[in-house]
Simulated scan of single mutants.
Amino acid sequence: MLRDVQGYCKNRDGESFSKFELEDNRFSEVMQKIDNKVENKLCGRKMTYCFKDVYNGMTGDKNQVYTRALHAEENAFLQISKYGGSPVMGGNLFTTASPCELCAKKAYQLGIKNIYYINPYPGISYTHILSFGKKNNPCMNLFFGAIGQTYLELYEPRIAVKDELELLTEESIKKIAQGEEQEQTVEYGDIEYESVCIDFQFANNRSEIECYRSVEAKILAEELCDVKKSIVWTGSSYDGTELVPEESDEDIRIEQTTDFLPYTYTIKADRKQDNKLKYKVVTKVKDEKQVMSPYLAHKVRNKTRYLELKISSKHTNDIFENVTYNVYADLEMKTLIESKELEIKDVNDVYVAEVKIDSPNVNYTYAINWKFKKNSLEKFLL
């Protein structure tokens, strides 16, 4: 059963909704707010929702434990325990996608011998859990044959129902629960970027990082006051984004909008149609725990004449290697259409890998990927 926002606001029956959902005042206020925002945009549809999205949005958590749903593998293990059947230890697990980290731990502890799957799960469940140690590791078997993913796609929706509804209404349930207005401050036709230059700089080690973003743009809208930007940082800590005044227009200000993922800041500048906009910001981040994903990506949402991506390291060539330039034909980085190696150059004792793109495609993602050198981690730990 798909529970929906309208059903909660109008019916509130105890069979469909939990005691918490019905009695928590803050939850009730958020659900009413969601209903008010989407009621005239659904074209007769119902706004289904995930409790986890609402609750995590309210609290700022990122936990999966709040949902009552089980993954298919978890459910299969528990049903066998509940009703009996063949022993699990030494058994075979058949699943569409290889197990996530949560299900992989259960399969490992239960002694599953073979795991057959069609699609690899995009995580670290195999390298971190299922292949750990030298004994009793499940054997991973990638299924191939006449069925495969093409067959499954006949029966799977192209996009999840809740994602389709958020696209239709242009409202994000989680962001509404966070208290943020969903309306974008900059639409596609509001601004044209003359140049966007991003320089991701490592200091003398791979832990302390500064990312500089230099922008020159032309305003196309009749009036534009705010340019809201977001940052997805996968490392240990985010220390904020600041304006570089000497390389920005004099009237520009910057406001930090959120201090949780995705981190956002807003460029404040009053501009009329055909006015120019120039600013430079620096984002300071840290990766003390060595957990960052090794890539720098830029999503092109507005017309852009020139894009430059650069990673650099001062005074040492012991941080990154195997640098590649990747182009994705979407904003989710799922459809890779181009990949090539980049040369690391020594420019005045700064080691640089960069790429320059004329007229990048709108709704494409351009990225630089790399691998961290092993000795960069050892040097830091010592």
Rank of each mutant, 00 (worst) to 15 (best):
Y238L: 06
S237D: 11
E208V: 13
E242H: 08
K175N: 15
F260Y: 13
L167D: 14
E180S: 09
T241Y: 01
Q182M: 07
E208M: 06
S230W: 01
K175E: 15
K218E: 11
D226M: 09
C211I: 15
D226S: 05
K228W: 02
E180M: 10
T257V: 14
Y212K: 09
S237C: 08
D226R: 08
Q182N: 15
Q201N: 14
A203L: 13
I198E: 05
Y193F: 15
I219E: 13
G235D: 06
K174F: 03
G148E: 06
D199P: 00
I147E: 04
E181V: 10
E166N: 08
N141D: 07
T258Q: 01
A146R: 12
T264G: 14
E192T: 07
Q182L: 03
R206I: 09
L261V: 12
I147T: 12
L154R: 13
L142P: 00
I252K: 05
D259F: 14
K174M: 08
T241F: 01
E166H: 04
G235H: 06
S214P: 02
E247K: 15
A177F: 05
D249S: 07
M140W: 01
S207M: 07
Q201P: 00
E223C: 06
E194L: 09
S237M: 06
C139F: 10
N205T: 15
N137S: 07
L261G: 02
T234L: 04
L142S: 08
F260A: 03
I219M: 13
C197P: 00
E210L: 13
G148I: 09
D259Q: 10
I147D: 03
W233H: 01
F143W: 03
A217G: 02
V244K: 04
T185H: 05
Y193H: 11
I219W: 14
V161A: 12
I219C: 14
Y151G: 02
Q182Y: 14
Q201Y: 05
V232H: 07
